[in-house]
Computed example of a mutant assay.
Amino acid sequence: MAETVTTDETVTTPVAVPELHLDIPGGFHSLGLDLDPEEREEQLWAVAMEIWPHGTDFQREVAFHTYREMAENAVAEKSFYAGFCLGEAPDGRTTTASLIARLDPLDDPDPELSARGLFEALSVNENNTVENIRVPAGPGVLVLCGLEWHSDPQDTAAPSLPLARIDVYLPLPRMRRLLVLSMTTPSLPDLPFYVSLLSKSVHDLTVSSGAAPAAGQEPGDEAVRGDTVAEQVRADFG
């Protein structure tokens, strides 16, 4: 069952404070950003036990410290949610991904102009594949990029791991916030699957303000599904 994350960002407004309702894909374990540090450590240890029920203490300790570092980084970035999934693909491979969500200040209250500015700024990096998207909540920007994780950044000969990351930037003018969702996975063959999970979360999110969507914020036409990862990304997000 998908987890629902609700934020209650304080906004100075004469009407009720808007709330963001975001469904987290099923199978993701929360890193407990909504808990105090002591409770978070208890939850992370419980997650490590769940992931390694028949593992060794060393395996559980490594998992715990890895999750704690992920949580600390997410807190430093002022994220309101961080989680990960770990499962088995149909062919027996281990598949995993992490998901982080945060709300940044929104500079431009016009979502169309904000999305356009984001598209131009993010397109400067030639390693990014940047797409305009449109979901029921309004216009946004999708970024697909490849990363390289190094076990020791100071040693070029140290083991490394290729990663793929999908970022969604979605202006939410009623909250005066920019929603940023980032999903990262080393399981490159499963990238289209994780893109579809993120797509569903973005399509289903709501902002409870009681007002109708702003003009021009209608869902876009469904794109034709293609064979490349970029085409599958566009198709998933419409």
Rank of each mutant, 00 (worst) to 15 (best):
E3G: 05
T4G: 03
T12V: 15
P18I: 09
L20V: 02
H21V: 08
H21N: 14
L22C: 08
I24T: 13
E39W: 11
E50K: 14
T56Q: 00
Q59P: 04
V62E: 07
A63C: 14
Y67C: 07
E69D: 11
A74Y: 01
S79C: 13
F80E: 15
Y81H: 05
F84G: 04
F84A: 05
F84W: 04
C85D: 10
T94C: 01
L99H: 02
A101R: 03
P109C: 07
P111Q: 06
L113H: 10
F119Q: 12
V124H: 11
N125Q: 15
N127V: 13
T129F: 09
G140S: 01
G140C: 00
V141E: 05
V143P: 08
C145E: 12
D155A: 03
A157Q: 13
P162L: 01
L163M: 14
D167A: 12
L170P: 13
L170R: 14
P173Q: 01
R174Q: 15
M175E: 09
R176H: 08
R176Y: 03
V180A: 09
P186S: 04
P189L: 00
S196H: 14
L198E: 11
L205R: 08
A212D: 13
G216N: 12
Q217H: 15
E218M: 12
A223K: 14
G226N: 12
V229A: 00
A230Y: 02
Q232G: 00
A235Q: 13
D236E: 14
